[in-house]
Amino acid sequence: MRVASSGRLVREVGEFALIDQITRLVGSVASSRLRIGIGDDAAAWRPRPGHDVVITTDVLIERVHFRLDWTDWGSLGHKALAVNLSDLAAMGARPRLAFVDLGLRGSERDQEVLDLYRSARKLGQRFGLVIAGGDTTRAPNGVVIAVTVVGDVPKDGRPLLTRSAARPGDLIGVTGPLGLAAAGLRVLERGLKTLDGSPAMQEAYHRPQPRVREGLLLRRCGVRAAMDLSDGLLGDLPKICERSGVSAIVDLFRLPIPNAIKWGFSDWRDLALRGGDDYELLFTAPPHVFERVCRAFRRAGLRPPFRIGQIVEAGTEGPQVKLRNVLGKLEVVEPGGYTHFKV
């Protein structure tokens, strides 16, 4: 029996409204060393002048974020670390250390747990990251994985990427295709494994690729505004607009949505733009900086980013996201992507 308490049900409040309440509560205590707090992809702490430490954390819970009958333990370890690396990539930071907290029923096999750590270690080694510790405990209701990643920033005088630095006139870019992971989840839910493109969709869902190199290049090229796409384009772009006090126009014909998604799902637009779990980087930059980014990506052997729209002044109605079709017609869209605690 629960102890009686006041307040509204969390599922009625909603995930982002709850985060706003928490921010107002804990964000009221200022610290000169906390450079970036709640509201971006990661926090930034300055222990001494000229040295920024970037910290992020994320939790994966069985039957909320994954199902063990759909995924193997190696893929689970990869994804648990990848979603945190993506947060650091969105800030333009270098990952250094990871701490893994693991809750287990006790009925798992030791080799399954080791497979999880092997896969996480392999991914971390690609970026010079070391798994430095963590905790294990009993979790009778299902597997829980909580990962914290610590990174730092090259001493080049350039600021971290944030959600509040978009400006009118900026172009909007993304580092890769949209909707593959959401389509992969749909494939698993509906048993559509013979669908064209199904293997790539499932791979994107199980093993997202964090854009760490891309994030470092964005910051080095002079980009100021970015975040990772975890809640879908129409869930995350409004966050940049709100934090920056601007609006955005997205060109539908420019969106990098694979044809397999358009052919395979009648609701392909919502699936690709609101489904989430893309873990590509979304950024804005002035046109000359955007061109610099494209050249830098090519020199590094990376696919250049896709230009998908532009940032404009927010009107009297406040920050908005509008979709523009090939004929130039604008459609105001309701912001929203993946969210926990849906009623």
Rank of each mutant, 00 (worst) to 15 (best):
R8V: 07
L9H: 14
V10C: 14
E12C: 10
E12V: 13
G14F: 01
G14H: 08
I19P: 00
D20R: 09
D20A: 14
Q21K: 13
Q21L: 12
I22S: 03
T23K: 03
L25H: 06
L25R: 03
V26D: 15
A30K: 15
L34T: 00
L34R: 12
L34C: 01
R35W: 04
R35Q: 11
I36C: 03
I38R: 04
G39M: 11
G39H: 09
D40H: 09
D40R: 01
D41P: 08
R46E: 13
R48I: 09
R48T: 10
D52K: 13
V53C: 11
V54F: 01
V54Y: 06
V54K: 04
V54P: 07
D58Q: 08
L60H: 05
L60Q: 11
L60V: 11
E62L: 10
E62R: 01
E62D: 03
H65E: 03
H65N: 06
D69R: 06
W70G: 03
W70C: 11
W70K: 00
S75M: 04
S75R: 03
H78L: 12
L85S: 12
L85V: 02
D87N: 15
A89S: 11
M91A: 11
G92T: 06
A93W: 08
A93P: 02
A93K: 08
R94Q: 02
P95D: 05
F99H: 04
V100Q: 09
V100N: 05
D101W: 14
D101E: 15
L102N: 01
G103T: 13
L104R: 10
R105H: 02
G106L: 00
G106V: 07
E108W: 05
R109C: 05
D110C: 06
Q111F: 04
E112R: 09
E112M: 05
E112T: 03
V113P: 04
V113D: 09
R118N: 15
R121C: 11
K122Q: 14
Q125L: 07
Q125A: 14
F127Y: 13
V130T: 15
G133P: 00
G133N: 02
